[in-house]
Nucleic acid binder design. Sequence first.
DNA 1: CTACGACTTCAAGCCGACTTGAGGTCAATG
DNA 2: CATTGACCTCAAGTCGGCTTGAAGTCGTAG
Lengths: 140, 140
Amino acid sequence: MKLLDIAEVAHSTGMAASRLRFYEEKGLIGSIGRRGLKRLFEASVLERLSLIALAQTAGFSLDEIAGMFDETGRPRLDRVQLSAKADDLDQTIRRLGALRDGLRHAAACPAPSHMECPTFRRLLKGAAESRRRRWVEDLG
Amino acid sequence: MKLLDIAEVAHSTGMAASRLRFYEEKGLIGSIGRRGLKRLFEASVLERLSLIALAQTAGFSLDEIAGMFDETGRPRLDRVQLSAKADDLDQTIRRLGALRDGLRHAAACPAPSHMECPTFRRLLKGAAESRRRRWVEDLG
DNA sequence: CTACGACTTCAAGCCGACTTGAGGTCAATG
DNA sequence: CATTGACCTCAAGTCGGCTTGAAGTCGTAG
């Protein structure tokens, strides 16, 4: 099994080395030894980093993500939690869909000012309750 | 035209007063006078706050949002920018859709570990390029 | 064998978006 | 007319997620 140094991991994931060190410090990934000073990672760290990226996309914080691996480092994803998350995402997706449609409309709308466009105004009403930070946090 | 004090605005928007002051300091909203010490806002600030919330949902930073109003305070939304945002949102939505499907699959999947499930692994691949911070930032 | 350059550690800094705290001021109520 | 309590200002703090900087340590190319 090929071992990768931090530069290789950084290069193939596009993540800065500092970030990988930061993740290691947080317990998100583990290096399996050193060559000289340099950390060595198993190739599987790439997969793990993908999983981390995925979880971030889903709105999990790094701390939450850290809790998703068991002691041996294997993911232990709670299936119940997963479907709950999927439901949340569904919500989010629908909100964003409405938003996208609203934006597109606003971009094409002939009203002199967006504020005079009923579609845009309807969109505004919806936005009041559901801001980005809110739904990102709510996912957690 | 009715004037609102900060408490009323805070209450009807659900935003903390500190946040409204913060927005004023940033130039995002403007109070139109004082009664004693207390700021007074025109009722139209509510609409403006909705617009701000909307823009935040769409992934604009507060600084960007500040640039979306002209001197008289009317929104001057760049239609090109809006459709670009809509496109970004579309991207995001598609990714999140794939993610949701992946999560649902993982929740139902009989594979002993998620890592052994081909569907889940496919999901990982997709996530690698598109992290949350990335798309949030790229929207700007 | 020595110099180089890529890594290391640790602490501190930064960004966005606010919140919190200390100490001050004011309009209204009793 | 004095108290109360909601607001005020300004500075500092918080949180997440990293990045940056200074000073040190290696393996390897020359």
